[in-house]
């Protein structure tokens, strides 16, 4: 339980930080696409008898980088490339599962998360990846923000925009696979998108928006884990529903005119 909460908070922070950049780049569903392609990786791992998260890391990072390259080279729009990645991941996963005769139980925990069962090793891995990614984000804060705001101007200011784009995609890949244990493949994009969309509505600057988003995210994850523990249901759904209710609440406040319009 303690491990679940600690890992959950780390993942909450990670997803809202990386998700903020993705949302602002109109790349909101990218997380979803990587998650789906990691499904293929998980199936591969289960079939090969390797720890499935490792193969998931491998497959999703490779597909994230490939899709970025293809998108750049052939000038395919963001949403179309996401759709391609999303369906090919699931397709590969399904074919592999079919070939190996199906392994229902394990796959289920990856689809919907299993944070209450997180191991000591997993917790350590989650904490260290979160630490590393947050440090990278802090060190490259200006470059990440500027190239998200406007690529062309960032280029003119001498920022290596292409490298930064790859870095964001790479970090998103790592983040997604790391978060699979919390909410599973199917609901990951909720953690990327919902707290950020909520936070952006408050009309604040970048740092405050990030802090708001992180707070919403932590609240939903912690409350979600506790509630689902008490009522013995899967945390993933509870977490996502809680963050949706924060979004709905914010929309309510906003239409009541209590927030300055923007």
């Amino acid at each position: 339980m303690q491990r679940a909460l600690i890992s959950g908070v780390a993942i909450a922070i990670l997803c809202s930080v990386i998700g903020l950049f993705l949302v602002l780049r109109r790349y909101a569903l990218f997380g979803d696409a990587i998650a789906h392609s990691s499904f293929g990786g998980i199936a591969l791992g289960l079939m090969a008898g390797v720890y499935p998260l490792w193969t998931a890391y491998g497959v999703s990072l490779v597909s994230a980088l490939v899709i970025t390259k293809v998108k750049e080279k052939y000038n395919i729009s963001g949403d179309a490339s996401v759709a391609v990645l999303l369906s090919s991941g699931i397709a590969i996963g399904l074919v592999i599962i079919g070939i190996s005769g199906g392994f229902t139980i394990d796959i289920f925990s990856f689809l919907f998360g299993s944070i209450l069962l997180v191991s000591v090793n997993d917790t350590i891995l989650i904490l260290s990846l979160t630490g590393v990614i947050l440090i990278v984000v802090l060190l490259l804060y200006r470059q990440l923000l500027y190239s998200t705001f406007n690529e062309e101007q960032a280029k003119v200011s001498g920022i290596p925009v292409e490298k930064i784009n790859y870095l964001i995609v790479f970090m998103a890949g790592v983040t997604v696979v790391t978060s699979i244990q919390l909410v599973g493949v199917l609901l990951i994009s909720a953690l990327f998108v919902i707290p950020n969309v909520t936070a952006i509505m408050y009309g604040k600057g970048f740092k405050q928006t990030a802090i708001l988003s992180i707070s919403f995210s932590i609240f939903s994850v912690v409350a979600g884990i506790l509630v689902s523990y008490i009522f013995d249901i899967t945390p993933a759904g509870t977490i996502v529903l809680l963050s949706i209710s924060l979004l709905a609440g914010t929309m309510g406040i906003k239409s009541a005119g209590l927030l300055s319009k923007n």
Binding site: L145, F149, N150, Q153, V156, G205, F206, K207
Partner: peptide
């Protein structure tokens, strides 16, 4: 450089201060 049409997301969460800081 000041571009002809600075393009950005209309609801991008950046204040004037944030934008100027990007240049710094």
């Amino acid at each position: 450089y000041v571009p002809q049409k600075p393009i950005f997301e209309k609801n991008f969460p950046a204040t004037v201060n944030d934008v100027v800081q990007m240049g710094l």
